[in-house]
Every structure is written in structure tokens, then in C-alpha cells.
Amino acid sequence: MTDPSQPTAENMPASVWNNPWHNLAFGFGSGTLPKAPGTWGSLVALAFVPLWQAMPGWGHGLVALASMLFGIWLCGKVAQDLGVHDHEGIVWDEFAGIWITFWLVPAGWHWLLLGFVVFRVLDIFKPWPISWVDRQVHGGLGIMLDDILAGVVACGLMHLAVLLVG
């Protein structure tokens, strides 16, 4: 039996292409890719980071905060629409996590690469307390919160790397 939370050609909702909320939640379609949708979603989100980094720090912070709050509603709505707790194709949570990761981090391709890897490692392996949140918190908040925490930890690690490497 196929796990409905795993994206496959058979269970990918057609609504991703004709419902704007579903399209956003599925990362403009990046979540429809059958292998590693979270990684693909993170890559699409990474493309926006230079825009956020060109803003003042408070502006980037506002974008990250808005993406978190909007994401709680969006991911909860789309998961409910699909009847699945956390469909693997929903990648808006990765968007928010990546955008948090790079808050006040200097621009540069090497920082983008490092931050992407750090965030993905945290999101995939989910060290405590991220793993606890992933198991215990449900709904839109649950879908978002583990990636928010991964983004906060990744941001802290990025700032440490900037201090150490400069």
C-alpha cells in the first residue's frame, strides 16, 4: 500500500496546478517532484534569499515572520483540503525555514551553499527538540514548527560560522 503522505504520480493532487493556495504550499510545484521534495522546495526558496538579503535586516525579519504566520494557516488549510496530516509535497515550511536560516547572514554564494546544507541536515535528521515537535505538534503549526526550529538553529549556526570564518 502506498503512503499517501509520500508524493507519487498517483497521489499528487491536480489542485497544485489550479488552486493558488495549493500551488504556494507545494512551493510553486517544487513539492510535486517525486524524489526529495523538501530539498527541491528549499532550493526554490533559496532563490529568494538574495532578494531578502538586499533588504534591511528588519525587512528580512518581517518577511520571515510573515512567511511563518502565513505558513501556519496555509499548510493547515492545504493539509485539511487534501485530507493528509503533512503531505510530503507541502514545502512552504521549507521556504520559511530557509528564509529564517539566512536572516542577517552576509550575502555570498558560499554562505548560500553552507546555509542550505546546514538547514537540510537539520530538517532531515531532526535532532531534539525538532524531532519532538515534529511528533507532538499537529495541524498547520505542527507542519511549520519543526522547520521554523530548524531554521532558527541553522541561523544560529550560520552566525557562529560568520564569526569564526568571517
Rank of each mutant, 00 (worst) to 15 (best):
T2C: 07
D3W: 12
P4G: 09
P4E: 04
P4W: 05
T8W: 08
A9V: 14
A9W: 13
E10F: 10
N11Q: 02
P13Y: 13
V16L: 12
N18A: 12
N18C: 15
P20Y: 15
P20H: 14
A25P: 02
A25N: 05
A25W: 11
G27V: 12
F28T: 01
G29T: 09
S30E: 04
G31V: 10
G31H: 04
G31K: 06
G31E: 09
L33C: 00
L33A: 06
K35E: 14
A36V: 13
A36T: 04
A36W: 07
T39S: 15
W40G: 10
G41E: 10
L43Y: 06
A45G: 14
A47E: 02
F48T: 04
F48P: 01
F48I: 04
V49C: 09
V49M: 09
P50T: 10
P50F: 03
L51A: 11
L51R: 00
A54W: 14
A54P: 01
P56F: 15
G57V: 06
W58L: 12
G59T: 03
H60S: 14
G61E: 08
L62T: 15
V63H: 10
A64I: 13
L65W: 12
A66S: 12
A66E: 07
S67Y: 05
M68P: 01
L69K: 10
F70S: 09
G71F: 14
G71T: 14
I72A: 08
I72N: 02
W73Y: 15
L74K: 08
G76T: 11
K77F: 13
A79R: 01
A79V: 02
Q80R: 15
D81G: 08
L82N: 09
L82E: 13
L82K: 03
V84W: 12
D86P: 12
E88S: 15
E88W: 12
E88M: 08
G89H: 07
V91T: 12
V91C: 07
A96E: 10
I100S: 00
I100E: 01
I100Q: 02
T101K: 05
W103Q: 06
V105A: 01
V105R: 00
V105F: 04
P106I: 03
P106L: 03
A107W: 04
W109G: 00
L112I: 03
L113P: 00
F116H: 04
V118E: 03
R120A: 03
R120S: 02
R120P: 01
L122E: 01
L122I: 02
L122M: 03
D123F: 08
D123I: 05
F125Q: 02
K126V: 03
P127C: 07
W128D: 13
P129G: 08
W132G: 00
W132E: 05
V133S: 06
V133R: 07
D134L: 03
D134N: 08
Q136T: 15
Q136A: 15
G140S: 10
G142C: 09
L145Y: 07
D147L: 03
V153E: 00
L157F: 07
M158I: 00
H159E: 01
L160C: 09
A161F: 01
A161D: 00
L163F: 04
L163S: 09
L164W: 05
V165C: 13
G166E: 06
